[in-house]
Amino acid sequence: MESVDIKDISGNIRFSTPINEGSKRHFLLMQEDYITLLFSLFNPVYFKLGDYVDNELGIFELVDLYKPTYNTTTGAYDYELRLDAYYWKWKN
């Protein structure tokens, strides 16, 4: 299974995750261009603005702060991390 490396602004890997079921890429011409990564962790990872993924689809960055949801059933933190195409960071 292919994995995705989420890097900080210095290019260091902050977190790696496999491409899990439910993860997707969404592209709507001149309206949206992003990827969503779904994963769960027992210890939360706090992503920062500017964290990014650089792969064959392009460069996608975290342009909005994100906080995971705690799942009381599994005892883990559920992530639905949205990373927008690099050119969407201009919305800030």
Rank of each mutant, 00 (worst) to 15 (best):
L37I: 10
L62R: 02
V45K: 12
L38I: 12
L49V: 04
V45A: 01
L38R: 13
F60L: 09
D64M: 09
T36K: 15
T36L: 15
P44S: 11
N71R: 06
F60W: 09
V45W: 00
Y46D: 13
P68S: 07
L49I: 15
F60P: 11
D54H: 12
D51H: 09
L41S: 02
F42L: 01
L65R: 14
D64Y: 13
F39C: 03
K67W: 07
Y70C: 05
V45Q: 12
G50I: 05
N43G: 00
D64P: 00
E61A: 11
N55H: 08
F39A: 06
N55C: 12
L49S: 02
F42Q: 14
P44W: 00
N71K: 06
F47A: 06
T69E: 15
T36H: 00
T69R: 14
L65I: 11
E56K: 12
P44G: 00
P68N: 06
L65G: 07
Y52H: 14
P68C: 07
Y52P: 03
Y70L: 13
L49F: 01
L41K: 15
D51V: 02
L62F: 02
F60N: 09
E61P: 00
K67F: 12
G58T: 06
L41Q: 14
D54G: 00
Y70T: 05
Y46T: 13
G50D: 07
N43K: 14
L57R: 11
F47C: 07
V63S: 12
F39V: 04
L38N: 14
G58S: 09
Y70D: 04
F60Q: 09
L38G: 00
F60R: 09
D64T: 13
V53W: 04
G50M: 06
F39T: 05
N43L: 08
E56A: 13
L62M: 07
L37R: 06
L41D: 02
F42A: 11
E56D: 14
L41I: 01
E61I: 12
V53C: 08
D54W: 02
N43I: 13
L38D: 06
V63H: 07
K48P: 00
P68F: 04
L37Q: 10
E61S: 13
L65N: 14
G58L: 09
N71S: 10
D64V: 10
N55M: 08
V63T: 14
G50Y: 02
Y66H: 12
K48H: 11
E61Y: 01
I59H: 01
V63R: 06
P44R: 14
V63N: 13
K48N: 14
E56C: 03
G50P: 03
V63A: 10
F47K: 04
N55V: 08
Y46K: 13
G50C: 04
Y52C: 02
D54T: 01
L49H: 01
L41W: 01
T36P: 00
N71D: 15
L57D: 13
F39D: 05
K67N: 13
F47H: 04
L41P: 02
N43A: 08
I59L: 11
S40G: 00
E56Y: 11
F60T: 07
N55E: 06
L49Y: 01
V53M: 07
Y52I: 05
L41A: 02
P68Y: 07
G58K: 08
T69I: 14
T36G: 01
G50N: 03
S40C: 01
I59E: 12
Y66G: 03
Y52W: 05
F47Q: 04
E56L: 10
G50R: 06
